[in-house]
Each structure stands twice: as structure tokens, then as C-alpha cells.
């Protein structure tokens, strides 16, 4: 931890960032993000396996941007998100200082996104076996059973949009659910509005979701909505060989094509 504190301290002192985002144990004993602006506050930073939140989400926040250059402590999923966000041209290399702890416990400071790309590819997390299993299990049900399953789960959505707010890839300044000319998605959280919302959300994250599982973690209703994007990522990978969060250059299944893409349902 000392090494991390020193790193943050020096980053703030040498001016490569005026705000450093890390985890802390709050007064209430919760793991929360902390926003460090003074070198002497660096010892607030904490890191452990219990640090789950994907901090990349704060990169988009206006009040964070107001600080100018920002430093961020990133776990592997945050790194993947940052790389994807970078590939999508949402951040500039010189405005972000990224720090992580490698598997040997050493502090790594990245000079640029190329280094992040290399690091992420060397340390990429395996797909969550539990999620893969659940996707597999659902895929083996009959169509009607799947519809029942999802209707049951998604009907309980209260449309708090915590899943959207927590997702670093959901950075649109105006989300489709907020558009009312036309009203693409039914605003109320009846089952129709909920299913539309989740189909839309999953489509927008297909091949972009880095599988940090923040959406499912934050859902007050415990809806396993990450399975939708896990499934679509799988499709993007199988069909187009594309994976999110591994490249610093845009590689997004739906923004490109191959002349010989295969399908078996278009007549």
C-alpha cells in the first residue's frame, strides 16, 4: 500500500494529474472511490480484492473533467474499459495517468495507452466461468422457457438506471431512453418498457462490454443483466472474432464488416 501511496503522491506533486481517483475504505468501512487532490491525502488510497467498482466510469463525469488532468488507479477491468474508451476516442492519452498493481503486487505506471494495451493482453482475465455456464444453460432451454425466464427477471426492473450509470461504456450524453422525440423506449417500468430497455442496452454494448459485471453488481433487483452482454460478446467473438477492451485502436464488430461475413438466415 505504501508504494501506491508514494506513487499517487508523486503524481500529484509533479503535476501529471491534479486529481487522483482511487479506492478507499470509508469512515463507514465501505469500499468507495476516493478523489485525492492533495499529495498529503495519498494514504487514503486502499487496494484489495474487495475493490470491485469499475472506476473508469468517472472519466466521463463533468465534475471530474473539470479538474483537467486526472490520475486513476485501475484494476484489470478498469484498464480494459479505459482502453476501450480510448479506442472510441473519448479520452486523450495526455490527460490520463493510469496506475495499476500487477499480479506480483508491484505498482505499474503506464506511460501511454500502448503500454496499457500490452499489459491488458498479457494479463487478460479469463471469462467468468459462472456466467458462461449460465449463458450455456439458458441457451439450452426451449425458446418459451427462455422468454419466461427473461420476462420474469426483467419485469422486476425498477428502471433506476444504476446499470447504465455504473457502466463505463454507457457514456452517451443523451441516452436513447431519454429521447422522447420520438419516444423510442417506453419510459415506465412495466414489462414492455423494461424489455425494450434491456434489448436496447444490450445491443449498444455488444462487442463493447468489457465484462466487468458492474451492471449486475449494482442492480438493486439482482437482475443478472450482464448475461445479455456476455452472450452478445460471445456472438461477436464467434462470428466476427472481435473482443472488447483489448485494443487501443477501434475494433468494434458493428462499425465495420467483412464482405464474407457469414449468416444462415437472410433469404
Amino acid at each position: 500500500m505504501q508504494e501506491l501511496h508514494n506513487k499517487i503522491k508523486s503524481i500529484l506533486e509533479n503535476g501529471s494529474a491534479s486529481l487522483f481517483i482511487a479506492y478507499q475504505k470509508s469512515r463507514e468501512g465501505k469500499i468507495t472511490p476516493t478523489f485525492i487532490t492533495k499529495p498529503e491525502q495519498s494514504q487514503k488510497a486502499y487496494f484489495g480484492d474487495d475493490c470491485k467498482q469499475n472506476l473508469a466510469v468517472y472519466i466521463h463525469k463533468q465534475e471530474v473533467k473539470n479538474f483537467g488532468k486526472v490520475g486513476i488507479f485501475a484494476n484489470i477491468y478498469t484498464l480494459k474499459s479505459l482502453l476501450q474508451i480510448y479506442a472510441e476516442n473519448q479520452i486523450r492519452d495526455d490527460y490520463l495517468k493510469v496506475v495499476t498493481i500487477n499480479p506480483n503486487g508491484a505498482i505499474v505506471e503506464f506511460a501511454n495507452f500502448m503500454e496499457i494495451e500490452n499489459y491488458v493482453n498479457e494479463n487478460k482475465p479469463a471469462p467468468n466461468p459462472e456466467d458462461m455456464e449460465r449463458v450455456e444453460k439458458l441457451s439450452n432451454l426451449s425458446r418459451e422457457e427462455r422468454w419466461d425466464y427473461w420476462l420474469n427477471e426483467l419485469s422486476t426492473c425498477i428502471k433506476c438506471y444504476a446499470c447504465r450509470a455504473a457502466c463505463p461504456m454507457c457514456y452517451c450524453t443523451k441516452c436513447t431512453v431519454d429521447c422522447n422525440q420520438p419516444q423510442w423506449i417506453s419510459t415506465p417500468s412495466h414489462s414492455l418498457g423494461n424489455i425494450e430497455w434491456h434489448i436496447m442496452r444490450a445491443m449498444h454494448l455488444a462487442g463493447r462490454c468489457v465484462e466487468c459485471n458492474e451492471c449486475a453488481r449494482v442492480c438493486p433487483m439482482d437482475i443478472p443483466l450482464n448475461l445479455l452482454t456476455v452472450k452478445l460478446n460471445d456472438t461477436a467473438n464467434i462470428e466476427f472474432g472481435q473482443q472488447a477492451g483489448l485494443k487501443g485502436e477501434l475494433d468494434y464488430a458493428l462499425s465495420t464488416f467483412k464482405v464474407d461475413d457469414k449468416e444462415n438466415f437472410i433469404r
Binding site: R143, E144, W150, M203, K231, A253, S255, T256, D261
Partner: peptide, 20 residues
């Protein structure tokens, strides 16, 4: 070609949620 990719993904999603 873009549309084709979109339908491949969309169909995969609809199948997965059990839409006919």
C-alpha cells in the same frame, strides 16, 4: 454489410431472450 452484422447480433439477442 453493416446491416448484416447488425442483424446477426440482433438475432442472437432476440433468440437468447426467447423472442420468436
Amino acid at each position: 454489410y453493416h446491416a448484416r452484422r447488425r442483424w446477426i447480433i440482433f438475432k442472437s439477442l432476440l433468440d437468447f431472450v426467447g423472442f420468436d
